[in-house]
Simulated assay, not measured.
Amino acid sequence: MFVAIWCVFIVILNSLLGAVLISPRINGGQDAEITQFPFMASLRELRGYNQYKHLCGSVIISQRYLLTVAQCFSSEQVNWFGIAAGTSKKNEDVFIHRIRRVATHEKYDAFVAPFMHDIALIELEQPLTLSERINVISLNTTFYEGHLDAVTLGFGGVYDNIAKLQSIKMKTMTNPECRSKVGKDNQVYDFGILCAYSGDVKRRIGHGDAGGPLVHQNKLIGLISWNPKVVGSDKPEGFTRISSYNEWIAKHMK
């Protein structure tokens, strides 16, 4: 019942905002191995007795902490969620790391500005054991203007038939360039938003990819937040800009 109500809310929100994560998965991406991107993890939601299914992407930044976006948490009940790490397969039956605490940004408001301050920090109950399949990524601290080569990753939506991690090459753009492309479809805030595009309308991110990484030179520069709702659109996609939240992240990493 709760999931159904939340889905109705998202549909209404989508119609109001005009820029949402509506594609069911990364489109046109390439298969990726977790050993290439061992910092990638799946945020899973409890669906039935001890059955966790992929909900959003997440990124390992230390043995105990991960980042994702605030929009992925429709509930503060952390026992409804878990982390699957070290796998390239979306819903592979692997060990689920239990979550101790989730800190969503204090200024995040899903009703007023759902793509502003769209960031959340996950603390695990027990630290991860690092390996070639599970590892951390460094956070970017530089405010980049744009025109960087980057890559983004995602497992896709809960119900689609894509079972493996996908990657897409992207190029970032400045916020003024992004605003000129996006137009009235969404507000591109100077603080906290980073835009990027693949250069191919067939290569897009989707709602199951929210919270996944945008990476430049082996550093995390963004988290997947939103994309234009027009299928086949050449408009850029929106990411939470990591360099805008370094202090916030450090504050909440106890």
Rank of each mutant, 00 (worst) to 15 (best):
M1H: 11
A4M: 06
I5T: 06
I5P: 01
I5G: 05
V8C: 14
I12T: 11
S15H: 08
A19R: 02
A19L: 02
V20Q: 12
V20H: 07
I22N: 13
S23I: 01
R25T: 12
N27S: 15
G28P: 12
Q30W: 08
D31F: 11
D31R: 13
A32V: 15
F37T: 05
F37H: 13
P38G: 00
F39V: 00
L43D: 09
E45I: 14
Y52S: 09
Y52T: 13
H54G: 06
L55C: 07
G57F: 12
I61T: 05
I61W: 03
L67V: 05
T68S: 15
T68A: 13
T68D: 12
C72A: 02
C72K: 01
F73I: 03
Q77I: 08
Q77A: 03
N79D: 15
N79E: 15
W80R: 14
W80I: 09
F81G: 10
F81C: 07
G86D: 02
K89E: 14
N91R: 11
D93V: 10
V94P: 04
F95M: 13
F95Q: 14
H97S: 12
V102P: 12
Y108W: 15
D109I: 09
H117C: 07
H117N: 15
D118A: 04
A120V: 14
L121C: 01
L121F: 03
I122S: 03
E123Q: 11
Q126F: 14
L128W: 08
L128T: 07
E132A: 06
I134S: 00
N135F: 00
I137V: 07
I137H: 00
S138G: 10
L139V: 09
G154T: 07
V158D: 05
I162Q: 12
A163M: 15
S167T: 15
S167F: 14
I168F: 13
T172H: 04
P176H: 01
E177V: 00
R179N: 06
N186D: 02
D190L: 09
D190P: 05
I193V: 13
A196D: 06
D200H: 02
V201N: 11
K202M: 06
G206I: 07
D209S: 11
V215I: 14
K219E: 02
K219Y: 00
L220K: 01
I221Q: 05
I221C: 00
K229W: 04
G232V: 13
E237T: 08
G238K: 05
G238N: 11
T240G: 03
T240A: 08
R241I: 10
E247N: 13
W248S: 02
K254T: 08
